[in-house]
Design a protein around this nucleic acid. Sequence first.
DNA 1: GTCTATAGCGCGATAGAC
DNA 2: GTCTATCGCGCTATAGAC
Lengths: 223, 223
Amino acid sequence: MRTEKKKRATKRRSGPPPTAKKLAIRRENVARILEAAEAVFATRGFSGATTAEIAERAGIPKPNLHYYFRTKQALYRAVLDDILTLWLDATSSIVAEAEPKAALRAYIEAKMAYSRTRPFASKVFANELLHGAPAVKGFLGGAMRRLVDDKAKVIEGWIAAGRLQPIDPHHLFFVLWAATQTYADFDAQITAVLGKRSLGEADFAQAAETVSALVLRGLGLKA
Amino acid sequence: MRTEKKKRATKRRSGPPPTAKKLAIRRENVARILEAAEAVFATRGFSGATTAEIAERAGIPKPNLHYYFRTKQALYRAVLDDILTLWLDATSSIVAEAEPKAALRAYIEAKMAYSRTRPFASKVFANELLHGAPAVKGFLGGAMRRLVDDKAKVIEGWIAAGRLQPIDPHHLFFVLWAATQTYADFDAQITAVLGKRSLGEADFAQAAETVSALVLRGLGLKA
DNA sequence: GTCTATAGCGCGATAGAC
DNA sequence: GTCTATCGCGCTATAGAC
């Protein structure tokens, strides 16, 4: 998944080429840049983001950013890579052996927690999808599609066993993604309509409760 | 709501200042520009969009675009204005006198139809929200908030009358918006996961059916 | 009202001293 | 490995001939 694979451009020396100390500095700087970039890409979009703002937010001079990531595109790809990994991990509760009600509730809560704790990641991904997914089309049609097909099979198994009301499992996933990610992606709308300055723990708890209630009862898993 | 209010910059003459013919040309050109701009802002975002591409898509020379809309910002505002009007109209089925099940089904179908027929409008709005809604904050906290509060009262009335399972009406709306708009905004993801080139009538019908079934049963409105 | 030609500038990227 | 100084492109916007 990793896109960035730094090629050493400097003259080689004998012995262990990068000292432990330099490696630590590099790791620290790369982490700071990725974090800053996620925030800036989230709020400005790819075209609206400037490398100057990212560098400033990361607390490093602009040319150093270009030293670690040669182009803005490369940096963007690296940010997306991190996000895609997150995304795949969230589905882990959906397995055939699980109890449907608990598994779906856990999935909703995991996705909602991700919206709460990693809103920038959600927004960068949303922005990428919104503009036609030029950088992640391969991933969507590949790894993600296979994973979703797998999980859909699990749901179909539950339906066949009469443990769930019949439903199209793919569309069920689309609704779950939308309903949970909307609290990160479109928080500007939600806070404005609720008349709040920002969303807190309580709002996310209420949101998770509402989505769970609707979906679980909608699938016949609740009185 | 109209942001644009053209100020005549040319020398005035006696008689009816703009002839009927010129007015028609203006109307035609403005409409072409707005349509093109909606598409380009949807696919590229505000910063990514170029006035050159909009002009080309509208079939007019670039400087003419600046003649009708002095700045890119002004054009963007005009596009948003149209979209906000659309948005408000969709809630018309939610009224106290209506039968809850039919009203909610109609709302879901109206929003889904809007995703199918005006995907660019949905995307422009989504993009605006995603980046903090700088241009529509006032609208969200004003007209939209009042409308949603109104409609939430209707839902609460239905709940109080025992016609609906208790639910937080605001969060219900957030879920409905998310579940329907996702088919326009994130179509890149949906088509990739479904392995299709694009979404057709049948896909939107299936989507509306899934959302309706989940939500209506989730609210206790269906066996 | 139309369009060519260009001004002006913000931004990504890099050269080159340290 | 760091950072100042700068290049050059691509964009918005406009001047001015038609």
